[in-house]
Write a protein that binds this DNA or RNA. Sequence first.
DNA 1: TGACATTAGTCGCATTTGGTGACTTATTCG
DNA 2: CGAATAAGTCACCAAATGCGACTAATGTCA
Lengths: 233, 233
Amino acid sequence: MPNRTSVPAGRTSTRRTAPTVDVVLLTPQGRRLSVLLQRVEGGKSKERWALPWEALRGDETIEDTAARIARDALGSAPNLVEQVAAYGDGRRHPSGSPLSVAFLALVAAGAPAPVGGATAWFAIDDVPPLAPRQKAMLDGALHAVRTRLEHSPVAFRLLPTTFTLSELQEIYEILLGRRLHKASFRRALHAAWLVEPTDEWRSEGRGRPAQLFRYAPRKRRSSRRGVRFEGIE
Amino acid sequence: MPNRTSVPAGRTSTRRTAPTVDVVLLTPQGRRLSVLLQRVEGGKSKERWALPWEALRGDETIEDTAARIARDALGSAPNLVEQVAAYGDGRRHPSGSPLSVAFLALVAAGAPAPVGGATAWFAIDDVPPLAPRQKAMLDGALHAVRTRLEHSPVAFRLLPTTFTLSELQEIYEILLGRRLHKASFRRALHAAWLVEPTDEWRSEGRGRPAQLFRYAPRKRRSSRRGVRFEGIE
DNA sequence: TGACATTAGTCGCATTTGGTGACTTATTCG
DNA sequence: CGAATAAGTCACCAAATGCGACTAATGTCA
């Protein structure tokens, strides 16, 4: 990616102590997730890439700030924006601020090409060095997207509005990091009443054409289950 | 609770714009959770109670700040302190700050009596009016404690180091808001290798004495399960 | 054209997990 | 002693899940 320029946005105009809002923009690429980073003017430090961020202004909610940062970095609005957590450990942040709030933003597969020369997608297991706090925020966002998989429509926000069930399953496999059995996946999906078929089909070269579905969650009985002790340390 | 005094701690000395750290201290009382509130000088507003909070200082991590606030309010250290989320919507906070970070702190049943006259426990469905952002933080903390039940040892931190299985089940019932079947609960608990028996027994008046257990999580195979679509909106 | 590769989608069974009522055990109370 | 009470266990049945094997619909290539 030749001829990148630097990002001027709001890096110097605010007090060093103001909290920042940082956005982890994720999209599926190939069989892995990628994160959007911006090139920054490498002053004295060697770090040249950073998560999009901005100092918090008093006149905006942090959610609005995060959505605006994501839109500016991407050129269009992401499909989902959710808070991850606040980071106020001692780790270093480009701003020098003691406190940052991390947000997660999801973008559908395929849609976005890296916008300007100052912005690029990086596969998440091949990111360049980041400031320590931004690295922690990236890890936190990845952890969040995985754990929220069954309580938030995360996977559906990583796909276009219509998609095949194989594509959906692939997203789950990417996020969970393991293969899933086709029949079991579909049985659970249909039992949950989360998708409905469209009347379109997609022929992807070889093989039988796949029916396209859309995300359309239906009311369903709250499963009066017992307790799970699955993931306690 | 007669003769309460006001809490002087750090309310006026910091800039109005500095972020705050607010702590939701919870403990089981009777068959419900209670939250610790502090009486504040009712200046012009009618709100007289508030979550313990303090403006963020530059020399401390937010986790340390939260732990210290909890310790000061309680008189002793809580069993668990976890971040809930950052709150930077427009809602009003006693500090006037645009940003607050909420923490959750858990205290074992029975242990703590309300410390000074400025501090009291309130059953969570009978709290006095709070500033809107603190009300949102309380709701967020309650939601967090319920959803983290199966991924964090939340329930065990609401009990003393040794406890009976009936007591543990009662905590789960309080947090989940429904009754559980004894045999199923114990089967799942033992399968998860989370507790080990001590050689002590507790005789609680009538009935057969109960064996005391302690929280002692063991390594266990990561359950190679399929996907759950349980709670997606 | 017809065999084959490839991908979608389904079926049915074996096994595991979970809900539940009824049971046994150990204690206090009268 | 027997009734009451609470702890702890058992065994059965139903529901959920893992999984191999199947059918279906398309493109490729000899």
